[in-house]
Design a protein around this nucleic acid. Structure first.
Lengths: 132, 132
DNA sequence: CACCTTTTTAGAATCATTATAAAGTACATT
DNA sequence: AATGTACTTTATAATGATTCTAAAAAGGTG
């Protein structure tokens, strides 16, 4: 399995649960956005494979810490994650409550002129809200 | 009182509670960021004036709907609001968990090249995360 | 296999937010 | 000023996402 090494190299034991979650998250052509509940639902319904909700939370947070997932800043009662960890931005369709990827080139360069003493820029994220 | 008209014009009855919250939010030189709990605490501790938490929630949401407040997209367990409703962006200091305003001119023009059929851009928000 | 550490798990706990429904208030009309 | 009605406030309960707990299970090393 191709994810065993990836996990070991990150200092995470390749457990059945983590490998299964890797399959769901990373074994696809396209990247996608999801909430913890989305993910738990996919595992239960599509894969007929019960993983405890606590484990799904633990794993997603572990993957995020390792840089395999990104949180998307958004005002929602649920936290959204993105399997696309490259620099890019989002449309958020307020009517349909759906996220849409914006390629970096769709936004053009962003140049932050202000500097804060002793602080480094870790990420720049643009959220474009859409209406009808 | 200067807020009575403002409220009436928005179709909101100028109740004691709403006027008090207006004082806290809008009767200051500088704009600021806050959570519901911050606001409830200010009312209770600094103003010795108990307003039910439900009312604080209702009022803040009413003000947001009328455009007097903006939500700040951020991954946090609490919702952050901004009394500055003009176009501007934010630094988020991950270490101190603090928001810092970025003037529009600190960021430079943002030109979204991609269009979505039948959708209008309602807002563009940039979040710059800071590290040590 | 034996040992030790990490991980999983079910269920409880937490905490922000929303819903409920009863009491209070604003305000237009008389 | 009294009345009626719709809007507000309030305390409290309900909801729902997330985190905690501590016991059982699994991974990995010798």
């Amino acid at each position: 399995m191709k994810y065993i090494e990836k996990l070991r190299n990150s200092g995470l034991r390749p457990t059945k649960q983590r490998l299964k979650i890797c399959e769901v998250l990373f074994n696809t052509e396209k990247t996608f956005h999801f909430t913890i509940n989305d993910l738990a639902k996919i595992i239960k319904d599509k894969l007929n494979n019960k993983i405890s909700l606590a484990t799904v939370y633990n794993t997603v947070h572990a993957f995020e810490k390792k840089g395999y997932l990104k949180q998307i800043p958004l005002n929602s009662n649920q936290t959204y994650f993105d399997t696309n960890t490259s620099d890019h931005h989002h449309f958020y369709d307020l009517t349909e409550e759906k996220l849409i990827d914006l390629k970096d080139s769709d936004v053009g360069p962003i140049n932050i002129k202000k500097k804060i003493n002793g602080k480094k820029i870790k990420s720049i994220e643009v959220l474009v809200k859409l209406d009808n």
